[in-house]
Design a protein around this nucleic acid. Sequence first.
DNA 1: TGGAAAACATGACGATCAGCATGTAAGTTC
DNA 2: GAACTTACATGCTGATCGTCATGTTTTCCA
Lengths: 205, 205
Amino acid sequence: MTETAHRTQAQRREQTRTALLDATIDCLVDVGYARTSVQEICARAGVSKGAVQHHFTAKAELMAAAVEHLTTKLRRQLATSLDELPGGGTGVTAAIDLLWTGYSGTLSTAVTELWVAARTDPELRAAIRPVDRALGRATLEHVTQVAGELPPERAEMLFWLTVNLTRGLALDAELGGDPNRRRQLLEEWKRIAVLLYQDAATAPS
Amino acid sequence: MTETAHRTQAQRREQTRTALLDATIDCLVDVGYARTSVQEICARAGVSKGAVQHHFTAKAELMAAAVEHLTTKLRRQLATSLDELPGGGTGVTAAIDLLWTGYSGTLSTAVTELWVAARTDPELRAAIRPVDRALGRATLEHVTQVAGELPPERAEMLFWLTVNLTRGLALDAELGGDPNRRRQLLEEWKRIAVLLYQDAATAPS
DNA sequence: TGGAAAACATGACGATCAGCATGTAAGTTC
DNA sequence: GAACTTACATGCTGATCGTCATGTTTTCCA
């Protein structure tokens, strides 16, 4: 119990750092950005305010780091669900499911909180933009890998349409919209996408 | 100059009330929900904290009232753009444009702030949901009125797909995504919708 | 093994928050 | 026009915010 586990300095640093970042994400998810205070964060992380001060000069820097932490986690989640999902994946349909599961999870909820907050916070915004763009490109790669061969331009269109649609649906889900309707809409969108895929295959302009 | 304009009590009440609600919306739009304080609001409205206290028992009630105020404004905006837009409106295309202009304005920005905040605030959420559902239905009516005759079920699908897509696009716009891409995506979506419209007309299942 | 440095804790600081108690001015009613 | 009510202003209160200054513990290195 009272046994002191020997940890190297780098280990300690990394450990409390990730604890802080995870706590930040948790905080964003279940109390929202407005009420995500430093105190609340380090209470969840089990450390003191001095710790967060030692690792990050200001709250804004913590948030910026949380953004990066979030995207790496999202990338990992994307990779794993990519390995699991497409067993008998039917190309476009599987890709859409992939995006939906990605954008409807708790991680994306945290991202949305940060996005909306970033709209009126230039500093946070500057931190988010490049990371988000990189995530977008990486996701596009993964998805096209699943979706089979479409004309690249068409594929990108479909991708971004799906991304924005799922983002809208995720927002609807956050506010407690009807889950059934969301399912229906997603199914309908899959049918449309497949239809378009056939179009692109049979009559590429 | 120093002439005191005689205002009836009801006029005074209504006037500062709408001033407060407008100021709240302004505040949400350009400083965000997290930094929308009572002080900031009544500073913008040109009244004192006592005034907001007299009209609303708590900040939550102010926000709830702001939600209702917002939706009535959105309805008016929708109605006017409905009168202006569809001069040579081509049915579905015009309807999509209508929705986009509706969901990409400042009013919808404020709504998004409240939505995201409402996710972790049950009180605010309870205030938003019914009003938002009513707005959705009203919008659906207006849109179908513009879109021409589609099978009602198809029309509703298209409507909700468009709504969620435009919401996602609006979120993208808020964070400073590429406006050109948004234009392209919207154009593409219009083409798809028209295609589906033809489908529904020629081969109604 | 002991001193330096890094990692973390504690407590206090001014600022700001939402809410309340009390005062004043404008309108209403008789 | 005087009592009364409504509409608003002013100033305070405890709580909480982010930040900082200063201790205490843990690891490192020689």
